[in-house]
């Protein structure tokens, strides 16, 4: 069954920002999807992120989500999804 889609915000930081060439974008994604599907959707729109895809994590509305999590996530219009390359604060 085809799931309805919503438009969400994408934020890029550090190396992902440089690869994409911008800080922000929007993307249409299914309302219900697994974290792995979220990664796939983002990489399909921004294939330039492929070389670092094993070394990014994602935050949904400022909370980390695990790529291997098997519980589906539920997106709503305007959600904020951030691409988080390896951290180097401190």
């Amino acid at each position: 069954m085809e799931s309805a889609e919503v438009e969400v915000r994408l934020l890029f930081f550090a190396k992902s920002r440089e690869l994409v060439g911008r800080k922000e974008d929007t993307i249409k994604l299914p309302i219900h999807l697994l974290p792995a599907g979220l990664w796939e959707g983002i990489l399909a729109k921004h294939p330039c992120l492929q070389p670092i895809s094993d070394n990014i994590t994602i935050a949904l509305n400022q909370e980390y989500i695990a790529r291997e999590e098997t519980e589906p996530i539920v997106l709503k219009e305007g959600d904020e999804i951030a691409i988080i390359p390896p951290l180097s604060g401190g």
Binding site: K15, N55, P86, S88
Partner: peptide
Amino acid sequence: WKENKECDWAARNT
């Protein structure tokens, strides 16, 4: 771009 060794998804850890 640096990567902290404490970060689980840094290249050295994955």
